[in-house]
Design a protein around this nucleic acid. Structure first.
Lengths: 109, 109
DNA sequence: AAACTTAATTGTAATATTGCAATGATTAAA
DNA sequence: TTTAATCATTGCAATATTACAATTAAGTTT
């Protein structure tokens, strides 16, 4: 089917999964790392930096923008992308809460 | 294509993406949450708990096991699944390092 | 305006993922 | 040994994702 049955899960479970999913591709990980590293925040050199075709990068940027993790600023013919700090922090909080669950000692294995 | 070009990324980028990907489905999030919550660690009631068909749950468990996040213990006719503490901690460390990057103030937007 | 640059969009092909019915494997219980 | 219970596997259909060539859109430069 390929269709996730989101209606049987809580909002939080779906939110965690959506965040994780968008981080679940190395190109998007690389894009985010580059946006973190770079001073100022450049744009189309992501294509050179990463090595995928321009439409592919554009598509990955779109998904990151859709989740709110980055935002883009049009500057002439080029577009300047950067991390959306507020949303990134929020996402981080959600993910940390999930990752940081305490592990019960009463595990059987 | 549907085929990720892993060869153009670093091992770390691919590792982060793989971990994120396996967390990128609400059923797997729910399974992990349940395994964290429950005392001892039960098994096939995951099917009742989550509400997907048994083969579907089994498949999600397989993926979680493949990444090492959980392990299963055969106990008679049933199988006891639980979090693999060591690997979970390692995964957490990798993800935290990625999520905790400092955001440069020199952002353009 | 014509030519150029940069990035988004569209269309398409290939592959992956999700979900489940049916079946199989394994062990316990009767 | 038959029956039941639990879970894995297989096979399949539907949908999603990834990647890119070709094109479009929008702004710059000449």
């Amino acid at each position: 089917m390929g269709l996730t049955k989101t209606e049987m899960f809580t909002d939080l479970q779906n939110e965690i999964a959506l965040f994780a999913k968008v981080l679940g591709h190395p190109a998007r990980v690389a894009i985010l790392q580059h946006l973190f590293k770079i001073e100022g925040c450049i744009c189309g050199d992501l294509v050179d930096e990463i090595g995928l075709a321009q439409p592919t990068i554009s598509q990955h940027l779109k998904e990151l923008k859709l989740l709110g993790l980055i935002k883009g600023n049009v500057e002439g013919t080029s577009v300047c992308y950067c991390i959306d700090k507020e949303n990134w922090t929020n996402m981080k909080k959600v993910m940390l809460q999930f990752l940081d669950q305490d592990i019960d000692n009463k595990n059987c294995c």
